[in-house]
Computed example of a mutant assay.
Amino acid sequence: MCKHVLNAQVSIRSPCCRLWFDCAQCHADSQTHTLKQTMEMVFACKKCKKCFRKDMDEFEDSDEYCPHCDNHFVIEAREPKARLEVEGEDVRVDARMLRDERVKRKEELSVWEDEGEANRLG
């Protein structure tokens, strides 16, 4: 599972070390050598689990599909985005993290706010 491209449809066999990776960044993270450039790519479809070769010099629109299962593997990559969330229990189990708009909340005062003339000291 690639952490750089969330919707990777194929794995790519690197020509330098003959290992399988989902993207070039995964190869760079795990290997010490640089990725060798080649025009003949070997892919493994993640849908049907079969391997196939593509010549990138003669790549056409029909080559964007797996020859075995017609899985469209040339799609726009979805990359993970940073999010800031509050971790809690499942809301179906514990809904204390959610605000119920039906309940009227009592307005809270801080120590710096004036409650009125009657509660002043001195």
Rank of each mutant, 00 (worst) to 15 (best):
E64F: 08
S62H: 12
E79D: 04
F52D: 12
E76Y: 07
E76L: 02
M41S: 11
K49D: 15
E58A: 07
C45W: 02
D63P: 00
E64V: 07
D61Q: 03
N71V: 07
S62E: 14
A44C: 11
F43I: 04
V42C: 09
D61S: 03
C45L: 01
C69K: 02
H72G: 03
E76K: 04
E40K: 09
K50A: 10
H68L: 05
K47G: 09
C51G: 12
C45P: 01
C51Q: 13
V74Q: 04
C48Y: 08
E60Q: 06
H68E: 13
C51K: 13
K49R: 13
K49V: 14
C45R: 00
R53K: 14
K50F: 12
S62K: 10
C66Q: 05
C48P: 02
M41P: 03
E40R: 09
Y65A: 08
C66H: 06
V74M: 05
F52E: 12
C48T: 06
F59D: 09
F43A: 04
A44R: 12
V74Y: 09
E40Q: 11
D55R: 02
N71W: 06
V74C: 06
C51D: 14
P67L: 03
C69I: 04
Y65V: 09
E64M: 09
K47T: 15
Y65P: 04
P67Q: 08
C69T: 07
D61V: 01
I75C: 03
S62I: 11
M41G: 05
D57M: 07
F52H: 10
K47Q: 14
F52S: 09
K49L: 15
A44S: 11
I75F: 00
E79Y: 10
F73C: 00
Y65H: 11
C69M: 05
E64W: 05
C66R: 01
R78C: 08
C45I: 01
K54C: 10
K49F: 15
C51F: 13
H68M: 06
E58D: 13
D57Y: 13
V74I: 09
S62V: 10
M56S: 12
N71F: 06
F73W: 07
E64Q: 12
E64Y: 10
E40L: 11
N71Y: 07
F43R: 01
D57I: 06
C48V: 03
A44Q: 13
E40C: 09
R53A: 14
R53L: 13
D57C: 08
K47D: 15
H72M: 01
K49P: 05
V74G: 02
E76Q: 06
C48I: 04
M41H: 14
F73D: 03
H68I: 12
E64K: 09
Y65Q: 07
E60D: 11
C48M: 04
K49E: 13
F52Q: 09
R78G: 03
K54M: 12
E79F: 09
H72E: 08
C69L: 02
H68T: 13
V42R: 06
D57N: 13
K47S: 15
C69E: 12
S62T: 15
E79R: 06
F43C: 05
F52K: 05
V42T: 15
E60L: 02
A77H: 02
E40N: 12
